[in-house]
Design a protein around this nucleic acid. Structure first.
Lengths: 138, 138
DNA sequence: CTTGAATTGTTATCTTATAACATGAATTAT
DNA sequence: ATAATTCATGTTATAAGATAACAATTCAAG
């Protein structure tokens, strides 16, 4: 194995790259079926192909699922992919649909704060703050 | 209107009471269709009846939706109903399914901490911490 | 009453997700 | 090499979650 060191990004399969590009092009999180529709001409024929690819990307920390939207978005932070983090925090504007990921340097401390007095070993945290963004507060 | 002062609990409709009882009896969060199945003999015939009742109870702060489970649970804190709070925080054990609600005296401070430097007006926050509970860590 | 508004019932449908099994590719043992 | 095993992917069918659209009913105001 004389191959040069591989970067995570280069390891992606064709299908994974297609899903990443689709999500990256979109300004908003996408549902699995929207991704499927966008990729019908690229070999995606069934929902499960999308769901499996999303699962892989989520495991890599490159995509997050927005639990309260049943939708998926590319990770906006380099830190997630580099640590395979499945945890993420988002603000979601209920007026315009804007979604922004919060840096989670803060989040880990906050989670352990919340768990004070709870004997609980966290593996994956979802924080979704819904409300009104700056532009929409006018 | 000479009626005595009403408590929130006394205001509940028949259907709302049935859903509350069903959720309270269950040790685990329930999906809307499980609730429907449990209440088929009590006049519930269609999903929408369950969803509408759940929405009402959620608005009252008496039921919370677990976004990452697509399931519903009675609020375990008196503080939610008393302030009609739609925000809640949970720990969810991925081994045994245990779900426990975290007091949110902490949570509000934490949310504003997370939003430092974000011009965002939060209305509803979902925090769901998945992991392994004390019993399952053995 | 009776009109209009709001709630509740009902059917149909849409969206999201996964089970179950088939096919094919890679891996190892013989 | 090739059979046997395992693991990933394809495909069909269906389960589970949610809501749209409209009908029927209730209920308060005129």
């Amino acid at each position: 194995m004389i191959k040069t060191q591989k970067h995570a990004a280069l390891e992606l399969t064709e299908k994974q790259n297609l899903v990443m590009e689709t999500l990256a092009k979109s300004k908003r999180p996408l549902g699995a079926y929207s991704i499927l529709d966008a990729l019908r001409d690229d070999g995606f024929k069934a929902p499960l192909q999308v769901y499996r690819t999303l699962d892989q990307l989520i495991t890599l920390g490159m995509v997050h699922r927005l639990e309260s939207l049943n939708a998926y978005t590319v990770c906006q932070l380099d830190s997630c992919a580099s640590r395979n983090s499945q945890s993420a925090s988002f603000v979601i504007c209920e007026m315009c649909g804007l979604v922004e990921e919060l840096a989670h340097s803060n989040v880990e401390g906050i989670v352990s704060r919340l768990l004070t007095n709870f004997d609980f070993r966290p593996t994956k945290t979802a924080i979704e703050i819904r409300g009104v963004c700056a532009s929409c507060q006018s």
